[in-house]
Amino acid sequence: MPVDVLGKITDKRIIARDTVRIVIDAPSVAENAKPGQFVMVSQSLPTFDPFLRRPIAISGAEWGRIELIVRVVGWGTAVLANSEEGDQLRVLGPLGIGFPPPAGHLALVAGGIGIAPLLFAGRNWAKSRLFYGETTADWICDLSREKSCEFDIATDDGSVGEKCNAVELLKKKIDQFEHVFACGPEPMLHAIAKLCKRKKIPCAVSLEERMACGVGACQGCTIKTKSGYRRVCKDGPVFDANEIIWEELDERPCG
């Protein structure tokens, strides 16, 4: 069951360019949070700018605290990223369905800020390996605290890790895995979905969408799937890759 609470920021640090990791004291959210779920977040005193909360993936939950990774992509995320230790945030969650139980060895494939929900998955399921792609070294989140999961890094310019993308990293080792979880830009997810289909490996993708309510009431964040329109916030954000009509997502006028 989700709850709406005020939670104090107990730790905040910059972990990449324009990217912060925020730890929030919110026991009633943390105790039910599962990898793949998200929260709707705003400042404690809501303003009209932004008017709506922002959906942010949960990247960790332990000892009554949840961890969020926020990358500044607009004004709403800038407001959140500028919050300081000791400030309170409004947190509604945990929301959405999480990742399914993995079927054996698990590959986690992250593109950019898509890393956020996959860090939680990596901590939760020991038999996993993270493939993490970014454009350049500046944007790579600091993973030095991630003890439980091994990872390979790629950047488009080769400034850190291999000079390729996350899909190419995965391709080299895909035969070692029985399940793939992915989060990142839609073209990347589409490529992974195709690869997994060819290899007959189940693949779950976590999608991002603009949301109003975040709880399934307004039907604002729907996408077209093979079983009709589905709400990303309530029926997702994690979907079986085979359910997605990728061409519909690729053709979106904006997003």
Partner: peptide, 19 residues
């Protein structure tokens, strides 16, 4: 089924919808 996504967009002090 409702309209083609995107269906919501935030605006100054409000939002648009076309559900």
């Amino acid at each position: 089924e409702g309209n083609l996504p995107p269906r919501v967009w935030e605006t100054p002090a409000g939002m648009l919808n076309s559900i």
